[in-house]
């Protein structure tokens, strides 16, 4: 596979971190995409903004820390993080609670991101 800069893959995350393994499996997909130098954008909507909370301590519920894995994504070359601003407001989250440097977007901007993407995967 060769890197393709013409195609943009929009990965839309909407699950809370510990309701099922889907949040973690979505991150695993992003890591694989980064390994193959794909041009990906990550967009957190709905309950997925809860994945971004930086004070998660899930050891006592026998889960691996999703925020810790997300924090590692920039090391693997993923840098395009977007979050649905309205979802942050819904849960009352502020910037300093989040584990990634992330750009807030409006529904209009989200619609444009989807329209401009080559493919989208919803997790």
């Amino acid at each position: 596979m060769t890197p393709n800069t013409h195609k943009t893959l929009l990965v839309i995350l909407s699950q809370s971190p510990y309701s099922s393994s889907l949040a973690r499996e979505a991150v695993d997909y992003c890591l694989a995409a980064a390994a193959f130098e794909q041009n990906i954008q990550l967009l957190f909507i709905g309950d997925a903004v809860l994945q971004l909370l930086n004070d998660q301590q899930p050891a006592n519920i026998s889960q691996k820390n999703v925020a810790k894995t997300l924090s590692a994504l920039p090391i693997y070359g993923i840098g395009n993080f977007f979050v649905d601003h309205e979802a942050l407001v819904r849960y009352g989250l502020s910037d300093e609670q989040l584990c990634l440097p992330i750009r807030k977007v409006t529904p209009r901007q989200m619609a444009d991101m989807l329209a401009n993407a080559t493919h989208t995967l919803n997790f």
Binding site: S14, I45, G46, D84, P107, M110, A111, D112
Partner: peptide
């Protein structure tokens, strides 16, 4: 309600 509301917010 969530999925339907998202498809509206992402609509072009």
């Amino acid at each position: 309600a969530f999925p339907a509301s998202q498809c509206a917010r992402f609509y072009s």
